[in-house]
Design a protein around this nucleic acid. Sequence first.
DNA 1: GGCGGACTCCCCTGAATGTGGTATGGTGCC
DNA 2: GGCACCATACCACATTCAGGGGAGTCCGCC
Lengths: 225, 225
Amino acid sequence: MNRLKAKKLIQVALVEDDPLLRANLAAMLNSSEGFHCQAAYADGPAALRGIRASRPDVVLMDINLPGMPGTDCVRQLKELAPHLPVLMLTVYDDSKQIFKSLMSGATGYLLKRTSRDKLLEAILEVHAGGAPMSRQVARQVVQFFQKADEMPVTTRNASVVVNLTEREKEVLAVLAKGYAYKEIADQLKISFETVRTHLRTIYEKLHVHSRTEAVLKYHGHEGGR
Amino acid sequence: MNRLKAKKLIQVALVEDDPLLRANLAAMLNSSEGFHCQAAYADGPAALRGIRASRPDVVLMDINLPGMPGTDCVRQLKELAPHLPVLMLTVYDDSKQIFKSLMSGATGYLLKRTSRDKLLEAILEVHAGGAPMSRQVARQVVQFFQKADEMPVTTRNASVVVNLTEREKEVLAVLAKGYAYKEIADQLKISFETVRTHLRTIYEKLHVHSRTEAVLKYHGHEGGR
DNA sequence: GGCGGACTCCCCTGAATGTGGTATGGTGCC
DNA sequence: GGCACCATACCACATTCAGGGGAGTCCGCC
C-alpha cells in the first residue's frame, strides 16, 4: 500500500516491552513512507515521561505491559494529552480487555497479527479521526451491544442452552455447580462414563473445549475469549 | 480495488425504499466481481418474506424504511436467521440510531456516503465474520465506552477475593475467563509453573479444590455446594 | 420393519489440572 | 541483620478432563 500523499510524517510513539517486537515495529514504521517512529518505550512509566515531552501524533501501545497495565497507561496518557490517539495492540481478542481499553481511552484496538499494511492503514485512520478496530474486535464490540439488549431477560437456559437435550441440561447444571464427573454421576444416578459422553456432546454443541468455558457459557459470561 | 479471489459469488439482498438508490446499489453489486444482488426489497415486510426463502449471504439495509423501521426489521430478520450478517446503511451518524441498530442485531453500520469500494470491502468483511463500521460510527462507539465509566462486563471480584494479593487476583481473573494455565502464563508474562504456584495459594485462600469452584466464587455463584 | 435420536455404558490415549515439595530474589519492617 | 511476605520458578506424582473409538437399549415416526 502506497501513501504518496504524505506531506508530513506521522510521528508515532511505541510502547512495547518485547525488545524484538519493538525493534521490528520501529523499523517497519521508519521504512514506510509517511511514518516515523519518534520514540519507543519498554514500559508505561517511561512512555508517560517521554510522551509528555515529545508529543507524537499517534501512540501504538501493547496492552500487556510489565508493571503498569496498558489500560492504566492509556488512562494516564489521556489525562495529559486528551486528543492524542492511542492504538492498542494485543494478541488476545478477549472482550474484557477490549472494553477495559476502550473505556480507558484507547482510540482503536488491533490484534498483533494484523498485517503491516493494515497496521499502517489503521495509524492513518486514527490520525484522521477514526477508530480502527480489527475484525475480531469490532465483532466483539457489536456483540456487546447485542448482548446488552438481551440482558434484561436473558439468563441461563436461554440462547446458549437451547439445543441441549433435557438430560444434557441436567448434566450441565450440575457441572456448573463445580462438581467433579464422578459426583455428577452419583447425583444423577448414572455412570461416570455416561457423564463423559454427555459432556462431550455438550461441549460440541456449545463450541467449547473445557469445563470452565462451558460453565461460563451456562452462567451467561460469554464473549470471554 | 480488485477482488480476484472470488471463488463464489456473495449473494446480497437489498432493503431500500428509494427506487433510484435501490437500482443503483443493485447495479453496482452486479457489476462488481464476486458479488451478486440476489434480491431487492422496498420495505421490511417484503424483505422478511423474501429473505426467509432465499437465504442470502449478506443483507444491506437502509435504516429509514417506510412503515417498519429498519431496526425492527433487523430484529425480526435475526430471529429467523441469527447468523445472517446485516449491514445497516444510513445518512445519519447519530449515536442513538447507531446504538439502536447495533442492539437490534445489525452486524455493521455504514454511512450512505461510503464509497463503492469501501462498501464492497465492508460486505466482504462482514461476510468473513467482521463488523465493519464507518469511521464516524466507530468513533461514536468508542466514545460510548469512554463515557460509560462503569464496567459493562461484570467485575464483582469484591467480597471473596479480598484476601488475595494483587498478582493472585490477576491470575484468578484470567483463570475465570476460561484460559488454560499456559495461556495465563503467556498473558501475564510469567512461567507456567508460577501460574500453578499462584493457583495453589489462591485455592487455599478460597477453600476450593478445583478450577471450576474458584471461578464460581470469583463470579459470585457461591450457593453451589 | 427400518431409521434416527436420546440415553446409557465401556476402552484407550494424551493433555490439563491439583497437590506436595523446594528454592531464589526482592521488599518492607523491626 | 533477621524475618515475613510476595512473586517467581522448577520437580514429581496422582487425579481429572478432553477427545477418539465403539456399542447396546428404548422410543417415535415414516
